[in-house]
Design a protein around this nucleic acid. Structure first.
Lengths: 193, 193
DNA sequence: GTCTATAAATCGATAGAC
DNA sequence: GTCTATCGATTTATAGAC
């Protein structure tokens, strides 16, 4: 029997096979060329269909970007939900950081686009469901404080994780080593509990 | 009297006023919309001239990207040159990290595009003078080692700095606080000397 | 150094057949 | 669900006058 599905504020479920093909092709191309640098023609070519077929699934390019964002953010939402279930704030942050590292390593080839692409950042700011997830993540990372020290710490943690897994230096490192070393280094960033 | 100009492998000197206007406008637009998301028309509009006038200064868009990269990388090259002058490896890394933080805070609104934009990353890989600077930075950050621990550490330091200064959380923080807090947090990342 | 004008290709997006 | 065909706007880039 399945475990009860976590309450989702992001509707990433219910994709037809054709939609899934679009999302996966777009994800790979966005990561390599950026969102602005990816045309619908490139997505269509990658799938092996025409532009019109892509438009039948998502009738604007923005809709594709939102669908891609939902897929990537779903994991982050689960991680922050698990973290928020912890009672102690320091423990909560540890759980979230560990989840973020695991996700970032899993999705290392696409992690960059979510956190750095200007088009994606615009959606993260303006699309309400996305902003809520980001705000929950930041709140946990800041550990209840809101002073400059906590703010920069949260930014540095996010940046270190996203920046490290997408850094050219670690391109040839295996997932397990990257995960272990990243846990170790980012762990040093966290204040002693 | 002026101090002797540091040996430059990046030819960022010798810009005409018109070229400087192009570079500065491009820098701001690249940072906001990404490189692919910035057209020559947008650059021309920002300066207040026509596209043809822009093309008279740089006859391809790629040439503008290279010129922008040179300007931004010049600071990094000075920082790594200063760091390499130190005798002890741990001290060398400290000097470089401090220089990188200073540069990143100064250029916080454009720092992201250099380290994360897919088009810029392609130039950093393929343009030989750029790659040499990046390699020198990485060598100092890794402190003489080349194991997974040192590799991920170097990636995490770069990522933490670039990621932190461009993070939306710190957008409203003043430069001085950002610099101080970032030094503190990234300092914890460095192994005890 | 800047302009007008234009070329050739590609962009996102739509209509309608199958 | 995919196709052909097309639209209008925009893209990079060039030619030639001032």
């Amino acid at each position: 029997m399945e475990s009860a599905p976590a309450t989702r504020s992001l509707g990433s479920a219910g994709h037809t096979p054709a939609q899934t093909r679009v999302i996966e092709a777009a994800l790979a191309l966005f990561a390599e060329h950026g969102i602005s640098g990816t045309s619908l023609q490139m997505i269509a070519d990658a799938i092996g269909v025409t532009k019109a077929a892509v438009y039948h699934q998502y009738n604007t390019k923005d809709a594709i970007v939102v669908a891609v964002a939902e897929v990537v953010l779903t994991g982050l939402e689960s991680a922050v939900t698990a973290a928020e279930a912890e009672r102690r704030r320091t423990r909560s942050r540890e759980v979230l950081v560990d989840g973020m590292i695991e996700l970032a390593v899993e999705q290392r080839h696409v992690a960059g686009i979510l956190q750095q692409d200007p088009v994606m950042l615009r959606f993260l700011r303006e699309h309400e469901p996305f902003r809520r997830v980001i705000e929950r993540v930041n709140r946990v990372l800041m550990g209840g404080a809101c002073d400059p020290r906590a703010t920069v710490l949260a930014a540095a943690i996010s940046g270190a994780i996203a920046g490290a897994v997408t850094h050219p230096l670690v391109a040839e490192l295996d997932d397990a080593s990257l995960y272990l070393q990243l846990r170790r280094h980012v762990g040093r960033l966290l204040p002693r509990q």
